[in-house]
Design a binder for these strands. Structure first.
Length: 924
RNA sequence: GGGUGUUUAGCUCAGAUGGGAGAGCAUCGGCCUUACAAGCCGGAGGUCGCAGGUUCGAUCCCUGCAACACCCA
């Protein structure tokens, strides 16, 4: 009963419940029922929980908890990603701090270091996921570098290679000269930066004194030029096509070619062609058979392909040197400033160099088509649907995917080379030897690893036992294809598309049936949250609270740009002058749900969390009230009266809405329905109406017992309905409430989710209850508007036709006590229809006039103005409706139901107006 | 340059089938009413970005424009 004594303290309930849930095995994949599965997008093992995770996991956990309660055989698969580059960078940085270098350690020792780091520091995200209440199946936790997972990766590689999807080749790739690895198109971020356009004269061979002036943003690449191109229809240069020009400094003679890729308007209209260091030039070069001359090494320094005095120069030093030489030679025609797109690696920030190397690629043409088909024919559904367009558009333009990386941490490519350099692909060296009869021939394995996204593209099935033997793949049969994928729009291409392609190619089925795309969490100003901006929030700081100094320290430590410190400090002090209060996990989760509408980005607003913490407090206190007033509850109570029928009807309606919200991924509707129901229906009205009945147990024990039963039953249902969003508080409260109702079961999380009950929908009870609310609201508003004390009892007079009075009397049998209690009515008296009423404040509720005599208090002028106001509004409404009804087109074409509705509206308004005008005239 | 999304109360956002507009927060007034002051009661607040079109009727559908955001080149 300690629950009754204390107020709501989230921390006190959250700490113990999760441990108990997990230890009890409640999160483990279910054993019966229709399968429902979600794979967690595996967080990077290097990661710590950020707002995006917290948001995403709240939604996934709600879906999973809902499915589990709804009787599904539910799996929420846990796991983390080895995150090749990110992890390797962290460990390298740690080594650098100890003045160590990975090349000094050697590959094997370095990988041991990475594992050591992972085992010691890689578990932070798991702890945080538990703190958020995520009901993940930890017993199935998978790491993408686990031995079984690695086996699946090799299998996938070999099968794709056998199917002809994977090939090795020398191609132009995006090269990161800092990390010294190839990266994929998606890992390159292009931004416009200030640059220059250099106009350079290339002498025409055999025509002394004639030049072709090319324009370029990268003069240093001229050392690799193997052609100059003009537009074939450009009359200015038509005579040059077929001639040769001499590339200055390099001294090479190259042809002038015509290619429609050249824009006649841009620059000089002449383009130098460097097939080895530009993607577009590479295509032009291929069309015209131009050689590809690689002038850079892996660190983007000039190689022997450059003149000897320039060799070894880094590319931007080379640029300076070359521009200077050109100037001296008089070959620099002009320099203009120019905005250029600079491609940078998303990890290192280094400027990416298109670079010719041997890499492994995945062919996209056939796989692309199967993926697009799966989305087009509805086997995979995007929610919201418009993301399917984005997906298709991207797939249309997709290029072959470079899957090899020059890193050490990751899945090593299962390919071996003999001494002649011939490549063999297989699951293991032994398999390769046997298959190709290589016996003892020296073989060495490919040094490269696979891109991380290659292994994570297998995530939905490699976690379930694939390829495995029949016994170990039972989970695969049960849970694949998975039910839903929940992710942000930023990784549709990185991950979603690749999962669809890989899964279809390897399993012949889709990886998931629905993809719910949620928005990104931004700060209150709509800015992306990031460490470098210093505007990030740690979700657990919202949960547990943090003082200003700690928050400042957190936001300003290890800044990449220390000059931003004062700005960040100012902004933080302004937004959180007192730090952040503790709100509890449930309030934060509910906030995320409430903000999650239609997949758009969300601006995170702390005042919303405040509001939902208050909501938790409300629920807590409502339960305290329920428990306090049902101590003597005994079974066998009746169904109760109108109020009970009303609240049960409202509950049924809300349950229907909740289920629809789950089906449509509208977590905002889910949240608002539950909030409205609990606060404004259950607490504001039902519990208030219940009080007189509960307190009159001695005079009317049956009624009191029925009320107790309804108070408890509705509360118990709504706790179940709310549980997927607010697991902690609902569990703590449900355990108390269920005890009182003698419900079996240890935990709310394994109770059935409430089912919509059509039989509980009760229109009559709803209109009766609404009538009562109108009467009470009149009394309250009337008092408030006239400045009368809210507590002072006032008599209430009712007047109407016989039938109206008869209905009212029936309703009063149930609600007289309620109206006296909630409206502070001293007595309720009926006036004969024709009788003259005393000077009163009045209102029309339907066809009944309700009034409070205010002899002496009433100011006639004020009352008259009040009525005039109401009359004016009614007249306006009537005018609109009459205009419609006078329109023959409307009568002809509008649906009958709408016409009828308008006719009724007009009738009601007319009679109301008549009454109001009578009252107005009577006010003297 | 191409594409997608957004534009509704002071702020953050709903508006589900086209039938004259909703919530939370903030704000104003009144309440220590035996669950809750993290509360209760009541009020005020809108040219639904702009211009056309379709329709009996448009916040909603169509076209154009503007602003903002993101993606691609």
């Amino acid at each position: 009963m300690s629950l009754l004594d204390r107020g709501f303290e989230p921390d006190a309930i959250e700490s113990s419940l999760y441990e108990w849930w997990e230890a009890s095995g409640f999160f483990k994949a279910g054993a019966s029922g229709e399968p429902y599965s979600i794979m967690i997008p595996p967080p990077n093992v290097t990661g710590t929980l950020h707002m995006g995770h917290a948001f995403q996991h709240t939604l996934m956990d709600a879906l999973v908890r809902f499915a589990r309660m709804d009787g599904k055989r539910t799996l929420w698969q846990m796991g983390t990603d080895h995150a090749g580059i990110a992890t390797q960078m962290i460990v390298e940085r740690q080594l650098a701090a100890k003045n160590l270098d990975k090349s000094a350690l050697g590959r094997d020792t370095f990988i041991d270091e990475v594992w050591k780091w992972r085992n010691e520091s890689g578990g932070e995200i798991s702890r945080q996921l538990r703190r958020m209440g995520s009901s993940l199946d930890w017993s199935r936790e998978t790491f993408t570098m686990d031995a079984e997972y690695a086996c699946a990766v090799r299998e996938a590689f070999v099968r794709c290679h056998e199917a002809g999807y994977i090939y090795r080749g020398k191609r132009l790739v995006n090269w990161d000269p800092v990390l010294k690895t190839a990266i994929s198109d998606l890992e390159v971020e292009s931004k416009e930066e200030d640059g220059s356009l250099w106009h350079i004269r290339y002498p025409v061979v055999g025509d002394d004194g004639e030049f072709v002036t090319v324009a370029t943003t990268r003069p240093e690449t001229m050392l690799g030029d193997t052609g100059v191109a003009v537009h074939p229809e450009d009359v200015r240069f038509a005579h040059l096509i077929g001639k040769r020009v001499r590339v200055p400094i390099a001294g090479r003679e190259v042809p002038v070619i015509g290619d429609s890729y050249v824009s006649m308007e841009f620059g000089t209209g002449c383009l130098k062609i460097t097939p080895a260091h530009d993607f577009n030039d590479n295509e032009v070069g291929k069309r015209h058979g131009l050689p590809e001359i690689n002038i850079f090494d892996a660190e983007a320094k000039l190689t022997e392909a450059a003149p000897s005095h320039l060799q070894g120069l880094e590319r931007f030093d080379a640029r300076k040197a070359i521009v200077k030489t050109l100037e001296e030679l008089g070959l620099l025609a002009a320099v203009e400033s120019h905005r250029v797109q600079i491609p940078r690696g998303d990890r290192s920030g280094a400027i990416i160099e298109p670079y010719l190397t041997d890499q492994w690629f995945m062919r996209m043409d056939a796989l692309r088509d199967t993926a697009v088909d799966a989305v087009t024919d509805g086997r995979i559904e995007f929610v919201p649907a418009h993301y399917a367009n984005l997906f298709n558009a991207w797939m249309r333009d997709i290029r072959d995917w470079c899957i090899s990386r020059q890193l050490w941490w990751g899945h090593r490519i299962p390919a071996w080379y003999d001494e002649a350099g011939k490549v063999y692909v297989g699951r293991s060296e032994n398999e390769v030897r046997e298959k190709h009869g290589l016996e003892d021939a020296p073989l060495h394995q490919d040094e490269d690893v696979l891109e991380t996204w290659f292994s994570s593209s297998l995530w939905t099935f490699a976690t379930l036992g694939w390829p495995g033997c029949p016994e170990s793949t039972a989970p695969l049969r049960d849970f694949h294809p998975t039910s839903a994928l929940v992710t942000g729009h930023d990784i549709i291409f990185f991950w979603v598309a690749r999962m669809i392609m890989m899964t279809q190619s390897l399993l012949g089925e889709v990886p998931f049936r629905q993809v719910y795309i949620h928005g990104l969490v931004r700060d209150a100003q709509g800015q992306k949250m990031s460490k470098s901006r210093g505007n990030g929030l740690d979700p657990l700081d919202l949960v547990d609270g943090i003082d200003l100094d700690s928050l400042l320290a957190k936001r300003t430590s290890n800044l990449m740009q220390p000059q931003l410190l004062p700005k960040i400090e100012r902004a933080t002090r302004k937004e959180f002058p007192n730090g952040i209060a503790a709100h509890g996990v449930d309030a934060l989760r509910f906030t995320f749900a409430a903000l999650a509408s239609t997949g758009r980005d969300v601006r995170f607003d702390l005042s919303r969390v405040d509001g939902y913490r208050n909501f938790c407090n409300k629920l807590w206190n409502a339960t305290r009230f329920a428990l306090m007033n049902t101590k003597d509850y005994a079974h066998g109570a009746g169904d109760g009266g109108l109020a009970e029928r009303w609240i049960r009807s409202r509950l049924a309606t809300r349950i229907k809405a909740c289920r629809r919200a789950y089906a449509e991924y509208r977590f905002d509707w889910l949240a608002s329905n539950l909030y409205e129901f609990i606060w404004h229906e259950y607490c504001d009205w039902y519990l208030e109406v219940a009080k007189p009945s509960l307190w009159a147990a001695e005079s009317n024990p049956e009624s009191a017992a029925a009320t107790q039963r309804c108070v408890l039953e509705v509360l118990e249902s709504l706790l179940r309905a709310l549980h997927p969003l607010m697991p902690f508080i609902t569990e703590a409260l449900w355990q108390q409430v269920s005890k009182r109702l003698n419900i079996e079961g240890d935990t709310v999380m394994l109770q059935p989710y409430p089912v919509f009950d059509q039989a509980s929908i009760d229109e009559d009870a709803t209109s009766d209850f609404d009538w009562m609310r109108a009467v009470v609201t009149f009394l309250r508003t009337m008092r408030s508007e006239r400045g009368l004390p809210p507590g002072e009892p006032l008599p209430l007079l009712l007047q109407g036709s016989d039938s109206v009075v008869a209905t009212a009397k029936l309703r009063l049998q149930e609600f007289e006590g309620t109206i006296r209690h909630l409206g502070r009515a001293s007595k309720i008296v009926f006036l004969d229809e024709g009788a003259a009423a005393p000077p009163s404040a009045f209102e029309l509720v339907g066809d009944m006039k309700i009034m409070v005599p205010l002899e002496g208090v009433l100011d006639l002028d004020t009352e008259r103005r009040r009525i005039e106001n109401v009359i004016q509004k009614a007249e306006q409404a009537l005018k609109r409706t009459s205009a419609k009804l006078a329109n023959s087109q409307f009568l002809q074409k509008a649906p009958e139901a709408i016409v009828l509705e308008e006719q009724q509206k007009a009738q009601t308004l007319e009679s109301k107006l008549t009454r109001l005008q009578q009252e107005h005239a009577a006010l003297h």
